[in-house]
Design a binder for these strands. Structure first.
Lengths: 340, 340
DNA sequence: TTGTACGCGTTATCAC
DNA sequence: GTGATAACGCGTACAA
């Protein structure tokens, strides 16, 4: 049953008539081998179908080449776009991506992180969820790097990449007011992640500064259906808003569809809408949504870049050399706000 | 610089006052350990922050627990949905997913497959591309399982999962004719993958059988923009089609948007449209697209199920015990065809 | 430049 | 049930 399946460096060495270390050196970038030996080894390897065993290599080097991507809702447009960029750049950097799907259940992210540790991942990149503090500490203590994207400022990850959510939200208020809107609304999800809440706070604050009150509604998670529900709630009131900022493009699409097809409202004439993320669908002509672009490729390259450079410090147990990057979310003007 | 980072079973054994084997057995599901020993080991492991090293374990067992997902266009709705299901089921089966992104470039999938071999993946699941026959053979010879989803019938993979594309396409013809349409069209991409071509063939054949000619157009890859371009081509003709079957939902969305917003056509009154995949956007009320559902969860569970059961045969070099599964694509009736 | 010898962390085998 | 020992495939210090 269990015949030898993979061919080892030993066999290559025998066939090539050299020592096993010669084989090892041939496949190690920095090593010194004579041209003749290398040729013989390569020939034998090709003939036998030899491939380096990264598991064994990782065991020796204490460096697996594996980077763990921890994410929930992979099928969501923004998440999958970020995933695409990350995997692409990781591959170019000679790393390989391990994908772990989390859900809302308790301990889901912790399990993911533990999985990453068991496979001795060089790093973990979290696109969702917040790890238990102790687990995160364990990662760091184990020499594993941690990158948190659009997560928290409080989290203990060494590299944190965030957006200027609050400031961006302020710019929507200006746009709405310039379009002649006065009855502003904010449609949010109940997820309550830091970036979503920052958008809400920024929007409300900027409006209040202009003496405008904002009606805020929260429902469900950040998806299309939740947007519809939010619209049903906010548009059945006697006092309808004339402009709504949705915390997410998916919410905005749902909101817009409900406004048009269930309430026969015209966008942007009777209702201005703005979203956040700039998912592909936002540019589809049925929506033509004004929104803020997540700088996905910038996020991904910052993350991978940071992972590629060598560990700056040995890291004391208590003093984690944290680094925080704040990226700009550009406003993409389209047709869902009047007077672009 | 390189202080000991991870804690090993050896250290746990010392602290617990038992042998290394006892530690190993504690973390091996099927092994027999006394309750007392297990308790001591678990306690020591917890205190030290011990985690099994899957790299070393994989090295011993000749089984890494890694399953390679080879895919291009990850950010596409259908692909990401399939990816979600697969990663979820793999995790439940105790496996872990390694994601490799391929592009259209030559040798991209081959590199991916080689990567899978280097990490001693137990299996590779291909959602895109077709591997070079020699590489595929190498995988199989190395004891690696291979699953091809919506790929080819000619490929050498042991498990091939396909849909009844041709038959499904025939059912659209019936629906179109029943809606009173007589000028049928098929909008395809230039990608030319087997499933896309099967849909085209099935549609044309079924229409011809009823004495109806079909105008076929192909452009770009299977995306929203390509759908728009196809609409521009087909709707500027003197003889406009009154029903179009798009090889993909993304194409259909683009086609519909162009028809409505650039040609002021009403769907489904002047133009019936059908798609394929049943991506989430197909159900959004702006599109409300009649389409065929990819049975993503069935596909994923078939694949994972097959991987979970033990290798049925030792596999001779020439006789590969291939298995082919043909799944049904259900028609999802929505508003883009008259008279549902 | 090349070969020898050892160690990485784990599991399987076999005595006890 | 438990503990010693061999083996997995590889990198590398060291001596030649």
């Amino acid at each position: 049953m269990s015949e030898k399946l993979f061919v080892s460096a030993q066999e290559v060495a025998e066939r090539a008539g050299v020592s096993r270390s010669a084989v090892s050196r041939t496949f190690t970038p920095g090593a010194s081998v004579s041209t003749e030996t290398r040729r013989k080894v390569l020939e034998a390897a090709e003939a036998l179908g030899y491939h380096v065993n990264e598991l064994a290599r990782g065991l020796m080097r204490n460096e697996s080449g594996i980077v763990c991507l921890i994410v929930s809702d992979v099928a969501t447009p923004y998440r999958s776009a970020l995933l695409r960029e990350l995997t692409l750049l990781l591959q170019n950097a000679g790393k390989v991506a391990m994908l772990i799907n989390t859900d809302r259940s308790d301990g889901s992210v912790d399990r993911a992180l533990r999985q990453a540790i068991r496979y001795r991942a060089d790093a973990s990149i979290m696109l969702s969820g917040m790890p238990d503090k102790s687990i995160a500490q364990l990662c760091l203590r184990s020499g594993q790097r941690l990158v948190l994207i659009n997560r928290d400022d409080e989290q203990p990850g060494p590299l944190r990449i965030n957006l200027d959510d609050d400031e961006a939200a302020g710019r929507v208020v200006t746009a709405f007011v310039r379009a002649g809107c006065r009855k502003l609304a904010f449609a949010n999800s109940e997820a309550g992640t830091p970036s979503l809440m920052a958008r809400e706070r920024g929007f409300v604050a900027a409006a209040n500064a202009l003496g405008i009150k904002v009606s805020v509604e929260r429902h469900g998670w950040t998806g299309y259906e939740a947007g519809k529900v939010l619209a049903q709630r906010m548009l059945t009131r006697t006092e309808r808003p004339d402009a709504v900022f949705c915390a997410t493009d998916l919410l905005a699409c749902g909101f817009m569809d409900a406004a048009r097809h269930q309430f026969s409202m015209s966008v942007p004439d009777q209702l201005c809408i703005a979203g956040f993320d700039d998912i592909e669908q936002a540019s589809w002509s049925s929506y033509d949504l004004t929104t803020f672009a997540q700088p996905v490729s910038a996020i991904a390259s910052k993350a991978v870049e940071w992972l590629s450079q060598p560990q700056p410090q040995p890291q004391n147990d208590d003093t984690i050399c944290a680094q925080s990057i704040r990226l700009h979310a550009e406003l993409v003007w389209r047709g869902s706000i009047r007077g672009g």
